[in-house]
Design a binder for these strands. Sequence first.
DNA 1: CTGTTAGCGCATTCAC
DNA 2: GTGAATGCGCTAACAG
Lengths: 349, 349
Amino acid sequence: MAVTLADVAARARVSAATVSRVLSGNYPVAESTRNRVLRAVDELEYVVNGPASALAAATSDLVGVLVNDIADPFFGIMAGAVQAEMGAPAGEPGRGGEKLAVICNTGGSPERELNYLTLLQRQRAAAVVLTGGAVEHPDHAAAVAAKASRLAASGTRVVLCGRPPIADATTLTFDNRGGARRLTEHLLTLGHRRIGYVAGPAERTTTRHRLEGHRAALGAAGLDADLERLTVHGLYDRASGYDATLELLRRDRGLTAIVAANDTIALGVCAALRDQGLRIPEDVSVAGFDDLPFSADAVPALTTMRLPLHEAGARAGRLALGREPQPPGGVAMVRAELMARASTAPPRG
Amino acid sequence: MAVTLADVAARARVSAATVSRVLSGNYPVAESTRNRVLRAVDELEYVVNGPASALAAATSDLVGVLVNDIADPFFGIMAGAVQAEMGAPAGEPGRGGEKLAVICNTGGSPERELNYLTLLQRQRAAAVVLTGGAVEHPDHAAAVAAKASRLAASGTRVVLCGRPPIADATTLTFDNRGGARRLTEHLLTLGHRRIGYVAGPAERTTTRHRLEGHRAALGAAGLDADLERLTVHGLYDRASGYDATLELLRRDRGLTAIVAANDTIALGVCAALRDQGLRIPEDVSVAGFDDLPFSADAVPALTTMRLPLHEAGARAGRLALGREPQPPGGVAMVRAELMARASTAPPRG
DNA sequence: CTGTTAGCGCATTCAC
DNA sequence: GTGAATGCGCTAACAG
């Protein structure tokens, strides 16, 4: 039905093996025959059969990228960067080299995460990149670790980007704890003493680490007594930020600052404050985390911790392709940088 | 090396054929043997070899989703919705049914678009969903159409989501022209007469259609003389909106409204206006297009045309799976809805 | 440098 | 309802 290697071979008057060698390019072939083959390929509009090739070679050119929510720029940026590294380079369509990045949306669900891992294992993926925070349920963590080991054992490279290290995987962790600490210290330095915190879902590593950093900063200042009362958990979305802010104000109308676990939440925080007639930063300072593109454009511009998501994703992509040396110990930390902008200022009076 | 069908068959004391039948589920198998097989699968932690299965069955469970920029929520939302329809349903990991959505980031480059199409063809993808506006270069359009036909001919379903119809593909077009027209009419109704327009890249269908809608509204009001002078092209990003706004103000400081080709551009427009000391909407009204999540949270909240991106993506996903009947003629139009918010108001005086 | 020979792991005829 | 046999299209030794 479709054109096969054999057809090309016949037309070029060579053996199938030769055609295969020309196409994969990793074997010497005489210039003249190579041209003949290439011409036949063009004339026949031949396209390699990926599954057949993967079966014979026992490895495919798929690279899986797992994200919690592809509609969230936090993940979109990382995924895009990973995929850019795979590069289907212009000019040589259909010929060797390109990897196909498979972006899988888990929706934050542990089951779907495992399902996708299985699907990728079934496809004999060349590599898998897990992005974003992990769920901390012991069972799930163990299951993921087991899957990762099995993947690694069967030749699939496993790379983590933005979550804590596990065995058999190269890891790019984000310095969530340190970043969160420096962010809260920034607020303390400005003079704030009553600081609310809007956290993410309790079971995620990112949530816990950022909260720990916040706590550490407060503790160092002897202010951690109120921590629990002034912390509200929600999802990593705008609506949660909005609701959590109302709750925080209910608990302590005298808050002078609110730290959000990420920028998206911070947007909701700002909206709620405005709806309550409070000005930012005059009445309440607001800070986020991640420094997503929209944060610099918020009004007022949002103070936040910048995570180099694009760079991290690109590096994860290179690690997945084995194009970059492993960091020492298989783990590298990505640091966060304070972007002090207009949404934070000293408290009034 | 890895566990194969044969291993499972041996352990379950049946033939490989039977195991295959149990796993694909589309063939009668006695209850007792089925259970025996399933148990063996579990005990051996067997995972189907995707490539082998795809080779034998001449079809894979991959579905390609092409996007211009996965870091842009416009595409992230659609892609996420498509993928959600593929659903790796929780509870039955590794067994039949699930499709794997492959999200491919073209970066808006025609070459990469074609490359990915070839890659997907090579993988014998079950379906391909092309999202967002198309590039209008005649050569490229022809090349894409040809690829689409070839894909369709080889059994790959082709679905378009947000671009004009082509042969051999089911299409969900967006009513960019009508939406843009209604948006500008909204401004005209408010009393605006000097309206700037920040367009996207000239060669994209989305850009042209939205501009045509704008022009139609102006024309109907007898205001199209200034159209060219008050239109600036750029990319679909924030920086372009910023720069274009400065240029527009240079051309006509007396503008009372600026329409942006999408919300992201509108964000840049707002930033530029603010930096120029102009208030929104008192001095200049601003409108966008798409209604991305951040638009409602902008300050002031952005007037825009809402496109039901999630619904459209979900429907595209279902069409790709053949789970939804074709629309009449293979083409359905997705309408845009005016979201009149605080960023537009009558001009002063 | 090039051709020949074997599978890769599974889905599908066919028989039984 | 189940097993045995065949081939999907390609790559990887091995010869030559």
